[in-house]
Design a protein around this nucleic acid. Structure first.
Lengths: 234, 234
DNA sequence: AGGCTTTCTCGCAGAACTTCCGGAATCCCC
DNA sequence: GGGGATTCCGGAAGTTCTGCGAGAAAGCCT
């Protein structure tokens, strides 16, 4: 579950050691994260303020200022998850960082797999507010999370089967869905060609509720002998 | 989910070793947490469903079932923060637990100060997610902190179940809550689809107390065949 | 006793399924 | 190339059935 549907989440790395930065950058980019870097505290704070990362990996041992100060300064205005990465193993340091606003504390040497897992945990916490699967086709809006369908700004009431059918058509917009595919997706079990009349009924219902002129469909086009296709644009 | 302001947060400890349990219990109680205990997996899942803890400390090495299974079972219906506490240091175990729904992973032997700090971090997350403890929907005001509901300025008396149901609906305003989700959130993990009559009863009670015209709901909308949705606007 | 929760029954509205029929396109045969 | 037969799609009935809501009554806790 990534945050941004297209690319991965934006991650800012604040670390002064070039080889660690390089390692983190390469590995995280391989996992489709969008990486920004800073090699000092002030630069890190500045970067955080302009790129608005979804997560920050912060090394506490910085040349220009204390990592704890960086933490505090960022926490003054942002609640972005911060994973502290450091060589300091003393418990007081861990407690200070965690109570200072850090969301996790990983000591070097660290396993990259574990760090990735902890990054996923931190991103999971904010994921709900960022993820928003909404399909838009001109005047038609399908909100999969809220299970809402709007046409020209007003809500359209759909029965469960109607909604499921529209959803499978719209998520595969552009390509033809065979009758068999639709029957299996929407009705689930093993339905045969004889049941394809169900489809015509519910396609009819959908067109009646969505199309202005059901004889000239804007959204659902029938592909004779094959199935149906959801048009991405007029 | 709510952190109780008077006493500390409720913490459930699931661990089979009596001395560890004792140590955790005494220390956490000294920090004014409200402690519940379970010494096996099944018992832990059951406890979690009835005491609704604000946080769970889970030992992965349990006698009756795999700790990972406990994790998964609880995650089926609850998003309570879970801190895994274990002797397993292998990176694959950490990754599996974190990706399996754990919020943190602490290996034994552990420093009690660090564990406490990590508990504070986890609790901070749920506290910040309920940043606005007062929900307002037109004439309806729900004060989550005081467990109080007002309609048109006058107090509405709700039973515990009615309040819990309203709370879960209102905190997820806009999106559909399936009957299964509602049953698991409000009643705990043991209820299945067959118990959906409960829902209808209590939805009826809520509508009778909140809606002027229960046949034309302003707040609680039923989504036939799916569940219910709390309307964000009139 | 009183309130809260659970259980049960019943009526009803709407959804799902079924059947029948008309119209359009295609194919086939002459 | 034209006419009939076939095929396929779409609409309009009617029937069944699932799911929701309301009322009432029986446990259960304080």
């Amino acid at each position: 579950m990534t945050i941004h549907s297209g690319g991965g989440a934006r991650i800012l790395i604040i670390d002064d050691e070039p080889q660690i930065r390089k390692l983190l950058k390469v590995t995280l980019q391989a996992h489709r994260f969008d990486i920004h870097e800073a090699e000092a505290g002030e630069a890190g704070i500045y970067q955080a303020s302009i790129v608005h990362p979804d997560l920050i990996v912060l090394d506490l041992g910085l040349p220009d200022m204390s990592g704890m100060d960086v933490l505090r300064r960022i926490r003054e205005w942002s609640s972005v998850p911060i994973i502290v990465l450091t060589a300091k193993e003393r418990e007081e340091d861990k407690i200070a960082a965690l109570d200072g606003g850090a969301d996790d504390y990983v000591t070097k040497p660290f396993g990259m797999g574990e760090l990735l897992a902890r990054i996923r945990v931190a991103l999971r916490h904010v994921a709900s507010s960022v993820q928003e699967p909404v399909l838009r086709f001109g005047p038609l809006v399908i909100d999969l999370a809220q299970r809402l369908v709007e046409l020209d700004g007003s809500r359209v009431k759909l029965t469960p089967t109607e909604y499921d059918l529209l959803k499978t058509l719209a998520t595969n917009a552009g390509k033809v869905m065979t009758q068999r595919q639709l029957l299996q997706q929407v009705w689930g079990g093993h339905h045969y060609e004889s049941d394809s009349h169900y489809l015509r009924i519910y396609i009819g219902h959908l067109r009646k509720k969505l199309e202005e002129d059901p004889t000239r469909p804007r959204f659902i086009e029938t592909e004779p002998g094959i199935g149906y296709r959801f048009l991405s644009q007029d």
